[in-house]
Amino acid sequence: MSLEKKYPKEVKQLLAKYPPEHKRSAVMPLLYLAQREEGYITREAMQDIARILEITETEVASIVGFYTLYHDKKEGKYRMQVCTDLPCALRGADEFLDNLCANLGIKVGETTEDGLVTLESVMCLAACDRAPMFQTQGPRRHQVSRVHDRGPHHGIGRGVEEE
């Protein structure tokens, strides 16, 4: 189903934020809308967005490729994003990530066998006072990210499922 059919109200609201002659500005919010349910953006969704904004599919794909928060393939239902930048690393982020890998049985960038969790090492998340910190993103409430300080080293799968 096309994006406009699926989310008619949202598409209209997003386009209204920008001058009509500059509707290309809506490409980023429309991409978020497109990956709301499945956590990634399909080829069809890119074609939809290109049509709505009157730009080429290649231009839409170049946005997907440039920004790290857009994904073009299916991964885990939840993304665990662990910051390993300097301020977090000074407070044990690398060890924290190692523990997490061991507990989940996966490497950074991989997804657990049950398809529940993809583990990512990410850049600074602007919460260095709570270092080492990570956040999780889930599909149901895609506008929501949870910031965790010093998260649990075990039982992580259960934790996100409750979330």
Binding site: K17, Y18, R24, F66, Y67, T68, L69
Partner: peptide, 27 residues
């Protein structure tokens, strides 16, 4: 006043990259 979400690019803190991004282009 409108909010606009970036998508994970430090460079968009640079003001002209931010404006490009807000225009729907790569930052």
């Amino acid at each position: 006043i409108y909010t606009h979400l970036g998508a994970g690019a430090y460079i968009c803190g640079e003001e002209t990259a931010l404006l490009e991004s807000l225009e729907g282009k790569r930052g």
